[in-house]
Design a protein around this nucleic acid. Structure first.
Lengths: 232, 232
DNA sequence: GCTAATATTAAGATAAACTTAAGGTTTTGA
DNA sequence: TCAAAACCTTAAGTTTATCTTAATATTAGC
């Protein structure tokens, strides 16, 4: 079953970013950079969910949202810059089902999209523990939907960021993942400043919770000068 | 699938160097020495990634980067001299996806290029162990993604520089590689001072880890007056 | 045996990674 | 709505791994 998601943002790079993340979850993405084209698309295409930026060059995102509400029946998620606090409330009262502030995090964004789709029942909420959403190997069980991590039968209570990092490492296991790549894939943010050891601190916390030492790690190995990896 | 990479640097020798490394990975390189020609090319060619030097004779690299951001959608990597620290931040906020400081190391440069391409095409870069990324022959297994070296079933823990040297030797096996060439290809630095036995010291360490003596080497052979080689 | 090229070794310099703690932000729950 | 808790980020100091240099030893070829 193809799920069509409408993505509208005048910042092309952001629209592209969203597209990449959604496509990786096998969603079908329809991408537009202005209000006019979006409205035209709405006439022709069958849409399952829309992600709308509030600030568009021609038509306000709220206006599009209202038009969707009048003629269609699918969830709408509004995108707003972090400090457009007022828009949050306005957007929600005007009928948006959820809002996401920029910059957003890939996993969170995808999770919210899925949550909305589930709410509208087009997307089967009783998702089986499928290959896609979980990683199982050598004592480690990760489930993306449940945000759950089990290590050797024991549950680990990971924070969202920790979970994301472990997920990326585990899904790329066998390969070395650099700090930069980890940062990109977890934070979804292309502005990596470099003098930032945030990733490192989270790795430290992960190792602590996994009872993994930095010296002789069983799970997260440091590859000097390159990055971190989990053996395949 | 042909991947077109735009390389812009007014120092022709550096542009050439980058070209060589990228071509060896089967990328298609479009090379320019000034901003004007670059912009012209952008109109006509379909580009997958750009590497831009910040300092160009006519147009600033950032300006080109911004133009790319406006009209196109592909990753941009900025090249900066080591001490242009400010430019790092400026460049990134102006929309570059990554930056590389000169002098750079070939393997690292290529790895970053690939990382960006991955980010822009497929979200999950769990690249299979492909021919390109690994060398396998007579007991020796090298894998670039995993940064892994296995010799007769046993893993060797090589430092980044050691790995690079072994990779260059192994990928040119059967041929003698001079110290100078090794230095160029590993450090990417065209200024080889000569009174520098760094390569030699690393070779020594490699031999130690490989349990290879200098007198009767099984792997890294010394060709007197010429360089080193690994038998084909 | 002499010379030049290569090897070895060890120490100093550099760079990367680790740890800790403090401060800031967000989330949670009464 | 507010305070507490949880979480995230930053920064500074520490440790460790790696790289380079330099001094000395060895080897190959003449």
């Amino acid at each position: 079953m193809a799920v069509n998601i409408l993505v509208v943002d005048d910042e092309q790079s952001i629209a592209d970013l969203i597209e990449v993340y959604l496509q990786s979850e096998n969603f079908n993405v329809l991408k537009f950079y202005n209000g006019h084209d979006t409205l035209q698309c709405l006439e022709q295409q069958s849409i399952d969910l829309a992600i709308l930026d509030v600030m568009l060059p021609d038509i306000n995102g709220f206006a599009i949202c209202q038009q969707i509400r009048e003629k269609h029946n699918f969830p709408v998620i509004m995108l707003t810059a972090k400090d457009e606090e007022i828009d949050k409330i306005t957007g929600l009262t005007l009928g948006a089902d959820d809002y996401i502030t920029k910059p957003f995090r890939p996993l969170e964004m995808v999770a919210r999209v899925k949550a909305q789709l589930r709410r509208f029942t087009k997307y089967n909420p009783a998702e089986p523990v499928s290959e896609e959403n979980s990683i199982v190997f050598s004592g480690l069980v990760l489930n993306k939907d449940r945000h759950e991590c089990i290590l050797n039968e024991k549950p680990l209570y990971l924070t969202p960021t920790e979970f994301s990092i472990l997920w990326v490492l585990a899904s790329s296991r066998g390969r070395v993942v650099s700090s930069e790549e980890l940062y990109h894939r977890v934070w979804g943010d292309k502005y990596f400043t470099g003098n930032n050891n945030t990733v490192m601190v989270h790795i430290r916390h992960l190792r602590e919770k996994m009872q993994d030492s930095a010296e002789h790690p069983k799970y997260i190995k440091t590859v000097w000068g390159v990055g971190y990896k989990i053996e395949g």
